[in-house]
Design a protein around this nucleic acid. Structure first.
Lengths: 297, 297
DNA sequence: CTAATAGTGTCTTTAAGACACTATAAT
DNA sequence: ATTATAGTGTCTTAAAGACACTATTAG
């Protein structure tokens, strides 16, 4: 193309003389909200283990937020996408490569990192519980799977002259052995005229680094939001699973109990039955299923 | 906090000596996919005008992609969020301030901008057709509303040894007066084991700058995806509207005709009736409604 | 009257909720 | 028999689809 601009330059000439300039640029990090499902210990040999939703966190060994727990993540390097940076981080932290991953949101609040201007392009990853390796090996940054509790603790509506504000406060509690991290995250939507704008605000924060409680809340809400409409939960399942296990996963994410018969009708098209069964254990063995790739969304 | 790191520094000391360093950093732009609904010309005085979905584009006056059409956008400045940058851009381009806006995705393909390393944090904005001002005033960058056509033209499934790939090719056509822009965007999901990864790929591109066809496709899909599950379409409506107009908006976004009775049942809780009616025009006048803020999502 | 849009009534179809029932295993 | 889980049958309820019908205006 040889179109010339108002300075008489062709595109090629323009690019050759182009100076990236002295404009300040942010660092961009790719942070990962990594979920998995694990079994709780069972007290009774014939009872099924309960499922819990877990999140991978890394204990920070250096400033800032030394000793606090943070999402795995790292800076995006030149010549790679945020996606690649996220996958690199995932690989380093979990040893896993082929997992389900999707972009959540980019967080850009100027003061969110005390060091410098850092934006976080956040990804959610889902890994199947059976594939999860143990706690992170290198002593520098200790990794651990935290049990998640996330529940609505306050709902509010405030009237302004030109509209109103709705807010929902959620309590996020993360537990691992003796450690308990706690945060209150508010999701606030301001309605004015035809406009609406939703923000996450950090109300309280104990033990989590940066604004990571917000990113985690964002991940949980995305996971919950997609639970019923898509087949996203299937990515948390191992190769072979029972329908009861799948139902437990839906229940622990959605936060409510489901009816067995209705659940089975609903997921029927997402799974294919196999001829395998669970080992008998004091009750009728259960048929094992696998994902039905044809119908995943 | 006076915890010291392995170099014996407190957080305060660490931050004082912290050097942002020589790591390369990307520029981050906030680009806007701005939709509105407009009426087409009506040929018959008693027929209702049809609705069309439109997108705001700016004609580039300088390199690169001189003469091509691009999404409104600009670089994010220090001490502002990407959101604020997007709103600033929206205000400059449309004069509007309070509109519905939500973050779409961040695009970070290294070569997407030939000048330098630029990521695009993309936002979608919805503005009500009656609020839309004319074509952009300043001669430097000409702005125009393009009529959108977006349709599936090919669906494919490819089998690999360790899984398979599903792809959907969409044809995006944007029209404004004599100008017609055309692109083929492929949405590709690769399934391997329990993993799935979705990407947008630009197959063909005529007249659109950068990778903006991908960002536009992303916006259209978000809008379509939220159409049925949320009340997002209400943000495209003026203060007062008829249920037929609302139905037309749903139809033009969703790309399929709806049944009147069922539609009215479905949106009943999203609107409140008023005592106003449309001006009679050769047929029964229609009751006007407004948004029901109580039930918006 | 016709053409056009507005608005409602109701029967059918489909999906979800509720809940009872049968089946299988180990002790 | 008891405990515990697996799996199905079926009635009820709610929502969506289909389509016909009535209502209102201008010419």
């Amino acid at each position: 193309m040889s179109v010339r601009d108002r300075n008489g330059l062709t595109e090629e000439e323009f690019l050759r003389q182009y100076d990236a300039g002295d404009y300040a640029r942010p660092s961009v990090a790719a942070d990962m909200v990594i979920f998995t499902i694990m079994d709780s210990e069972r007290d009774n040999y014939r009872k099924l283990p309960e499922k819990t939703l877990k999140l991978l966190l890394i204990r920070r060994a250096g400033h800032p937020y030394i000793g606090h727990w943070a999402l795995p993540g790292g800076f995006v390097r030149p010549h790679e996408t945020t996606e690649q940076a996220a996958r690199r981080e995932l690989q380093e932290e979990t040893g896993l490569d082929s997992v389900y991953m999707e972009q959540l949101q980019t967080f850009s609040e100027p003061g969110r990192d005390p060091r410098t201007w850092v934006m976080s392009c956040t990804y959610m990853a889902l890994i199947d519980g059976s594939a999860v390796e143990v706690e992170g090996g290198d002593d520098a940054d200790q990794a651990a799977w935290f049990e998640i509790s996330y529940r609505l603790v306050r709902e509010q509506k405030e009237h302004q002259e030109d509209g109103f504000t709705r807010s929902w406060q959620y309590e996020l509690v993360l537990r691992h052995e003796e450690t308990e991290l706690k945060a209150i995250v508010e999701k606030r939507t301001v309605y004015t005229n035809s406009a609406a704008q939703t923000d996450y605000i950090l109300i309280e924060n104990e033990g989590l680094a940066f604004d990571h409680a917000k990113l985690i809340a964002c991940g949980i809400e995305r996971l919950r939001g997609k639970l019923d409409e898509t087949s996203i939960a299937l990515h948390l399942m191992p190769e072979l699973f029972t329908l009861t296990q799948l139902q437990q996963v839906y229940e622990v994410i959605g936060g409510k109990e489901l009816l067995k018969a209705a659940f089975r009708r609903k997921v029927a098209h997402l799974v294919v039955e196999t001829d395998h069964y669970t080992e008998p254990a004091g009750h009728r063995p259960s048929r094992l299923y696998r994902r039905n790739w044809e119908n995943l969304s």
